[in-house]
Design a protein around this nucleic acid. Structure first.
Lengths: 136, 136
DNA sequence: TTAACACCTAGGTGCGACACACAGGTCAAG
DNA sequence: CTTGACCTGTGTGTCGCACCTAGGTGTTAA
């Protein structure tokens, strides 16, 4: 049986991550009746490693919970795993497009501002730099 | 004097956004003594538009608060505006690199899995698809 | 006058994945 | 028995709203 710090070192994650996984029900350690400390099975190390592996593929903790539940009930999680990652691929494409657009807006703004002086508040504009940029 | 819904329509944002800006102190409406309703000045419409403009350039509400405070105190916000956007440009580069890497990991995984069948839980692996992927 | 109804309000909570803070417990060395 | 390093569980903060709840408002219709 492992304590929080022991399992966190074995699985190479922070103790806070382990505690978080417990809080959201991904891990369900027993408790030391003497002091209430969490006590994990050695198998939980594998579980934590699985969680990190899945997170590395973009799965959210909530997804991972479902996957583990499926597996635990003897059902194959593979169909939902494929479905979820397809969704994430699409969502991430959208996000990337947004962030790329933002990046361009920021770089264009910075470039434009290089030829503009700092301005003192004049009662009209809050910041003439920001307000000089096109809306979109 | 404008109510929440009136200012939200004028500035083309949701009423919840307006309420949020009030909660974090970006807007400080007066109150109708009869019912406690928020009452905004017509100038607050400009302020909300400024907030959205700044948000569109990647400024966080906290940044915007500082910018407005500077301006309100008669100090030029321009120096910090330039500084903040430079930081955001760097941070966003990092984020983009991470998301691009994630995207590749996800696409590679999905491709690899196309030649793999769904597996039933066998007591060893939680999901053999996820566990078959290289860690990084 | 009153009832119905659409629309509005303030403020509480939830989201995601932890990090951080806090007050206190544990344990080996001296 | 004390010091000190290290550990514990739990509460809160992050970010920008969206959603929820319980109730108020205001216009119209009977």
């Amino acid at each position: 049986m492992l304590t929080v710090s022991e399992i966190s070192k074995s699985a190479n994650v922070t103790a806070d991550s382990v505690r978080h996984y417990v809080r959201i029900g991904l891990l369900k350690p027993e408790r030391n009746p003497d002091n209430g400390y969490k006590l994990f099975k050695t198998d939980d190390v594998k579980k934590v490693r699985f969680i990190r592996q899945a997170k590395g593929l973009g799965f959210k903790l909530n997804d991972i919970k479902k996957i583990i539940n499926h597996s635990h009930k003897g059902e194959s999680p593979c169909p939902i795993v494929r479905k979820i990652i397809e969704q994430h691929i699409e969502e991430n494409k959208t996000k990337l497009a947004e962030l790329n657009a933002l990046q361009k807006r920021m770089e264009n703004a910075l470039k434009k501002w290089q030829s503009m002086p700092d301005g003192e508040p004049d009662g009209h504009a809050i910041c003439h730099l920001i307000e000089s940029v096109n809306n979109y």
